[in-house]
Design a protein around this nucleic acid. Structure first.
Lengths: 256, 256
DNA sequence: AAGTGGTCTAGACCACTCG
DNA sequence: GAGTGGTCTAGACCACTTG
C-alpha cells in the first residue's frame, strides 16, 4: 500500500511522521470521509513500529479532528473541512496578515496607571497596582477596524515603555524581551452600539452596531499577562468559534 | 504522602483513577498554582504502576488544563480557575438550566421546506433538498431571549414531525429516536441591530443591539446535522470563549 | 471467531534542565 | 550527574463490534 517512508534517523518522532503521512492522505482528499484509516496493528506491521507508536500516531490524528475512533470498529476519516479557519489567539497583526490585509495601528496613549477593579481581578494583581495602559486604534488596509485598550502589569515587564516601538507586535515584544509567550486567552463578547467617541474613531455613524470585547491572555502556566478592552466595528468582523460538546479533550472522561 | 488509593478490580482504568486523585488535590486548593505535581517516576513507584500509566494520567491532566509539563523540569499545577464556564455545545434548554433559569419556547412554525443556498452548503446536502424548518421564540424566565430558526435534513430523521413535541429538547429527541448525538458545532456571531419584526418578538426597541448567530452542529464523525440561524438580545447575553494559541491539542506539532 | 481499539507492563534510550 | 519528561519496544489481556 505505502512504501516505507519512515526515517528513523531524522530526529523527527516516528509517531509524528506517521501522523503527518496519514494527514496528507486525508487532506489531499485521497481518503474520503468515513473511510477506515489503517488500524493500529496494520500500521505497526507495515511500518515495523510497535503498536504503541502506531496508536500514538492515530490518537494524535484524532486530537487534530482529522479522524475519530470507535472501540471495536476502527478509526475513520472525519468529515471536517480543513480549510476552515479555526480560531486561535492571534495578535491583531497576525490576525490581519493571516487574512491578507495590512495591519496598522495608531497609538493614542501609552502610560502607566493604577489598575481598576476589573483589571486587577482579571490580571490577579492588587487593586491599584501599576499597569501599563496602551490605547490604540487599529486599522486594516488603512481603514479603522477597532479601538483597543491593553493593560499589562508593570511588574512583569518593567522596561516595556523603552522596549516597545509603536510599529511592532506587542506579543513579539513580550516574547523577545521577557520570554513571555501567550498560550491561550479567555474572551467575552457583547453586542452593543458605538458611543459618539467610538464612532468618531472608527468612522462609523453614532449607534452603529459594534462588538465589545474583553480579553484576558495567559501564559502556558495559567498566569494572566494581558487584559484588553476593545470595540470592533460590527460591519467589518465576525466571531467564529468551534464549540465542543465533550467535557474533555482527548477522550478523557473527567468532570470539571 | 498518599495512601494506596488504587482499586485494580473496579474496572475503572488506573490512569483515570490517578488523574482524578491528582485533580482533586488541585481543585481543592491543596496544591497551589505553580507547585510541582508528582513526577511520572514517583507516581509509578509509589502506586506500583508502570511509568506509561503514570504518564498517561499526567498527560490527561494536562489535557484538561489543570497542569502543564515542561521537558526536563517537571509537571506543574496550572493557574486556571476551574469555576469558569467553559463554553460547550449546549442545547438551549441545557444552557438555560445550567444558568439556573427556566427555559421555555414558543413554536412559530414547524414545516418542511427546500434548502436554500446557505443551508445546503452548511449541511452538505443538495440545493433544494427537503429540510425541516423549526422556527421558535426562546424564553428565559418567561421573558424572550432569542428567535431561532433550525434546519435539519429530512433524510436524517424522516419522522421528526411525529416524534418531536414542542416542549422537549430537540437534541434529546434526536438522540433518543435516531441515535444522533451532537458532538461539536461551529458558530459565527455578528453584531447587528434588531429589525422591526425581531424587535416585536424579542420585546426590545427597534434597532436595539443584537447578536446574529449561525450555527452548524456536527456528529462525532464530522457529519453536519443541524443548521441554525438565531438572533439574541444584546442586553441579555454575552459570548464567552477560550481561544488557544497552540495549533494542536495535546502537545502535537501538526500544522493544519 | 476474528479484528478492532483501550489499557497495562517493564524495560530502554534520549534531550532537556538544574545545581 | 541526577532528575525530569519524550519517545519507543514487544509483549499482554480486555471489551467491543461484526460476520
Amino acid at each position: 500500500m505505502w512504501p516505507a517512508f519512515l526515517d528513523r534517523y531524522s530526529g523527527v518522532p516516528l509517531y509524528y511522521q506517521i501522523q503527518q503521512h496519514l494527514l496528507e492522505e486525508i487532506r489531499s482528499g485521497s481518503w474520503k470521509a468515513g473511510r477506515a484509516v489503517p488500524s493500529e496493528q496494520e500500521i505497526a506491521q507495515r511500518l515495523g513500529v510497535s503498536r504503541m507508536t502506531a496508536r500514538h500516531a492515530l490518537k494524535s490524528l484524532c486530537n487534530l479532528g482529522a479522524a475519530y475512533s470507535q472501540h471495536g470498529k476502527g478509526t475513520f476519516v472525519s468529515g471536517l473541512k480543513f480549510e476552515k479557519n479555526f480560531r486561535q489567539v492571534l495578535s491583531f497583526s497576525e490576525e490581519m496578515r493571516s487574512r491578507g490585509t495590512r495591519p496598522q495601528s495608531k497609538v493614542l496613549q501609552f502610560r502607566q496607571a493604577e489598575s481598576d477593579n476589573e483589571v486587577a481581578e482579571a490580571l490577579h494583581i492588587g487593586l491599584g497596582e501599576k499597569v501599563f495602559v496602551l490605547h490604540r486604534v487599529r486599522l486594516a488596509d488603512s481603514s479603522p477596524l477597532c479601538v483597543e485598550c491593553t493593560h499589562i502589569p508593570v511588574r512583569l515587564c518593567p522596561e516595556l515603555q523603552k522596549k516597545f516601538k509603536p510599529r511592532m507586535s506587542l506579543y513579539k515584544c513580550l516574547l523577545e524581551n521577557y520570554g513571555m509567550q501567550i498560550d491561550f486567552a479567555d474572551e467575552v463578547a457583547e453586542a452593543s452600539l458605538a458611543t459618539a467617541e467610538e464612532a468618531r474613531l472608527l468612522r462609523v455613524p453614532k449607534k452603529a452596531p459594534v462588538f465589545r470585547f474583553t480579553r484576558t491572555a495567559y501564559l502556558r502556566n495559567g498566569k494572566p499577562v494581558e487584559f484588553v478592552r476593545s470595540v470592533y466595528r460590527g460591519d467589518r468582523c465576525k466571531v467564529v468559534n468551534r464549540l465542543s460538546r465533550r467535557m474533555e479533550f482527548s477522550g478523557e472522561r473527567a468532570k470539571l
